[in-house]
Design a protein around this nucleic acid. Structure first.
Length: 572
RNA sequence: GCGCCGGUAGCUCAGUGGAUAGAGUGUCUCACUCCGAAUGAGAAGGCCGCGGGUUCGAUCCCCGCUCGGCGCACCA
């Protein structure tokens, strides 16, 4: 595909500007208003070095860029050089390319041969998988897909919270009140019940806490009974988590959680000691980070057991040795900002220069309407599975109303309902906090997943109404692309053209919402095109040209939705 | 108290060191004998939190303030 910025930069480039071709290219922008061209080059910055007014510079540059079959108009307005692309040229350039590449459109190979780890979702065993977990799960999954599209070898890791003193409590609670048959039926709700009961009872009888600590020590020592129980909890919980992952269409390459690293911790403590980073403070072992304004990172409690930072250091070292990652991403809530800063600083002090490739990808807080934070202890949670089921049920209701005869209504309402939830989650910048409301999450009007999917369905419908011969011709590009010069078609094509750079941008910034937004714009323009122009016209040449654009749009929507982790149905 | 993050239309949110700040939603209109109306078009709605500074140019960068969220040693 032709890169218009490259061509413009080459035309503009000259030694007297004092800028490299790449610098010029990066200065080329897309004007806010299309009447000011498709690309623009601002000349303000050149005024100083060239000692001429920016208007004059712009006029000179505009003179230099040749009007040809690619650019039909080049003009100077104030300090800007505005370049107008010939609509048939970009139509042929872009639409042909997309139809040729199909599902490969938008992919690149810049990540060839590089490993990237994405640590995401990471729920705690024996605790509910609730809406607080949706963000890491869905954002992390999309980041995986985005990097895969860039050619990286992605390792998606579910760093399960499957270790720690809480399991001592769980073991004690299970011994006291546990029933196997309850556990089998509803593992997590049951385990959570035991857990809350433990906390209630422990308040009356503090000896329970001692018992729990003891149980955890026995677990760490590998005592059979405790290990067996722990394995049971882990297995049952995973089974339940996997049900949700299956609904969401998410898979992982590794489930190495906290327990996996437990035997790698002593070596880390030893290493910190040898590097003279550890010091004792109030009976505990810490790394003093005061001089970096990061307080103190606690490595070992006064009772000798490890902590969050310790485990994450062990994890990072293991991952570097095992995968030799180019990047190691942690999709974890912004509440943990300080923890990750401390952790990075300690790795840095240990002399690991790859610390710079370890990146915390934070996201904002989800709260409930009454201002409360989701709390496992209080039992005030909305289960992710319930949310997904509700969304599917609502979708099915809508479908029964609008399109009752549709085959496979259950499959499609799953795709649309769950797609709506995912899309909504990936719509805003991840750093923003939000308040969960059923109204919002179950709203399918406007800039939503169903809107984009509907657009895909529309495009599919039109293609179904065409003959095989027409479709083949549209695919091969045996058509006259000048029929795609109407305003909405032209604007749509420009959006399709930018998809590869949008994907790259979204990946570089770990921000799937950039793609989500672009996808909404594409859908809006397609719907506008659909209304502005009749597609299945009698004129055969025109019809095939328009079908080629419908096809290209359908491909781009499906590819982009896939990068968000959403299916693109043919009907709905 | 200190640190990090956020404040843009009634509401939910995009946006960029550059040209007249944009969507969706809500409100009020209009458009199905026509490829699927989960759609499209139009109207209305703005001291871009406040005050300074840097710059040819600031909603964007810097400083101060303010409001909201989060965090600040034996949880993760």
């Amino acid at each position: 595909m032709i890169d218009y910025r490259d061509i413009i930069a080459s035309e503009i480039f000259s030694d007297e500007l004092g800028l490299s071709k790449d610098e010029i290219k990066s200065m080329i922008e897309i004007p806010s208003d299309e009447s000011m061209g498709d690309f623009a080059f601002p000349c303000f910055r050149l005024a100083k070095t060239m000692r001429k007014s920016p208007q004059i510079i712009a006029a000179d540059i505009a003179e230099k860029i040749s009007v040809c079959n690619i650019f039909y108009k080049v003009e100077q307005v104030n300090a800007y050089v505005n370049v107008f692309i010939n609509p048939s040229h970009i139509a042929e350039n872009v639409v042909y390319e997309i139809n040729k590449l199909g599902s490969e459109y938008g992919k690149s190979e810049i990540g060839q041969g590089k490993n990237i780890i994405v640590d995401f979702s990471s729920p705690n065993i024996a605790k509910p998988f609730h809406i607080g977990h949706i963000r890491s799960t869905v954002i992390g999954n999309s980041i995986c897909k985005l990097y895969e599209a860039l050619g990286y070898n992605v390792i998606g890791v579910n760093h399960l919270g499957d270790y720690g003193t809480q399991f001592g409590k769980m073991i004690v609670a299970y011994r006291k009140w546990g029933k196997e048959e309850e556990l089998v039926k509803e593992p997590i709700k049951t385990l959570l019940g035991y857990y809350t009961k433990f906390h209630e009872e422990a308040e009356k009888d503090p000896s329970l806490d001692d018992e729990a600590r003891e149980a955890f020590v026995r677990l760490e020592e590998g005592c059979e009974e405790e290990v067996e129980l722990w394995e049971k909890f882990r297995e049952y919980s995973l089974e339940e988590f996997n049900r949700v992952y299956k609904m969401l269409g998410i898979t992982f390459d590794s489930y190495a959680g906290e327990s996996f690293y437990s035997d790698k911790i002593p070596a880390v403590v030893e290493e910190l000691k040898n590097k003279n980073l550890l010091e004792e403070s109030q009976g505990a072992q810490i790394v003093d980070l005061e001089e970096y304004d990061l307080g103190a990172a606690m490595i070992m409690k006064s009772d000798g057991s490890s902590l969050y930072v310790t485990r994450d250091i062990a994890t990072a070292i293991y991952r570097k040795n095992t995968y030799n990652f180019a990047k190691n991403l942690y999709v974890v809530a912004s509440q943990q900002n300080l923890h990750f800063k401390q952790w990075k600083k300690v790795l840095n002090l240990m002399g690991y220069d790859w610390e710079k490739d370890c990146i915390h990808v934070p996201f904002g807080l989800v709260s409930l309407e009454d201002g409360e934070i989701l709390s496992t202890r209080k039992g005030k949670v909305i289960f992710l599975e319930d949310l997904l089921k509700n969304a599917v049920a609502k979708t099915k209701d809508i479908m029964l109303e609008k399109n009752p005869d549709i085959p496979e209504i259950d499959t499609i309402s799953r795709e649309v309902g769950i797609g709506a939830v995912i899309f909504q989650e990936l719509s805003n910048n991840r750093i923003k906090d939000y308040v969960f409301t059923w109204d919002k999450v179950l709203n399918f009007d406007g800039e939503t997943g169903p809107y984009v999917q509907y657009t895909h369905v529309r495009a599919s419908g039109i293609l179904r109404n065409s003959t095989e011969d027409e479709i083949n011709k549209a695919k091969e590009g045996t058509c006259d692309y000048s029929y795609l010069s109407g305003e909405s078609a032209f604007r749509l094509i420009k959006l399709l053209y930018r998809v590869p750079e949008v994907i790259e941008d979204a990946a570089n910034r770990y921000e799937p919402s950039i793609l989500t937004r672009h996808l909404v714009e594409i859908s809006q323009l397609f719907n506008k095109f659909y209304h502005d122009e009749h597609i299945l016209v009698d004129n055969k040449d025109e019809r095939i040209a328009k079908l080629s654009l419908v096809m290209a749009t359908k491909i781009v929507i499906a590819n982009s939705l896939a990068l968000l982790g959403i299916n693109a149905p043919e009907r709905m």
